[in-house]
Amino acid sequence: MRDDPTQSDQTDGEVARYPQTGRFLMGRGRTRMTPEERRVLEDTAMAVKDYPARHHLVRRGEPVDSSMMLIEGYVTRYMDDREGYRQLVSVHVPGDFVDLHGFPTGRLDHDIGTLGPVKVALFDHQALVGITERHPTLTRFLWFATLIDAAMHREWIFRLGRLGAEGRLAHLFCELYARLEMVGLAQDGQFDLPLTQPDLAEACGLTGVHVNRTLRTLRERGLLTFKNGRVEILDHRGLCTTAEFNSDYLYSDCGVWKTS
């Protein structure tokens, strides 16, 4: 766990100045954005919308003409198989540009839905065209954000392909903690997570029964508790070891968490 007590304060200041985009790339390159670039991004948001929990935001294949940056809450990208069983392919936290990839592609190859109540900023794709034409450095930051998305997808493939049940859950918790800490929403090993055990199952390719048993095992090993939507990591190093977690794919400003 990093000793970085000022991260939350720094994020609070950015969010006060840039209420819609203040967490974008926080902890991984935001400080390299100029004040002008931060202002341009903030002013490009065309609207802010609130959505309830378990709400469909974008359906697979539909044309999209705007992209969402998550301001508050949690959003998931997911795919359903033909029997209706769901696989979560990503979980997004505040500051994430959830479907920026829809800007060049014009449609999404997955669905997007809320987990809890959320607030999102909408960016019209024509306005993003303006950024790409007039602000090349800011454009590279947007590109960087989508590359981090791609890196996380690779890591999720590793998680599902190589890790057992304990490792998969441990890895998900390690990743979410790292990402939330970067945007000032987790500290001292604790964070809120409005996911149910079925959600965790769908993210980790497990059944709800398996998740329930595995959470109990992680708790009995003294690694982590997850209760009433609150995660408490009790042994960060142990959890990272179980998860084979190496945070380099998150491109944090504060370095890499590695385990032996």
Binding site: L160, G161, R162, L163, G164, A165, E166, G167, R168, G205, L206, T207, V209, H210, R213
Partner: peptide, 12 residues
């Protein structure tokens, strides 16, 4: 019945 392992297998 839960099967954990070998490798990354985790099946109910």
């Amino acid at each position: 019945v839960l099967l954990d392992g070998p490798g990354g297998i985790a099946v109910t």
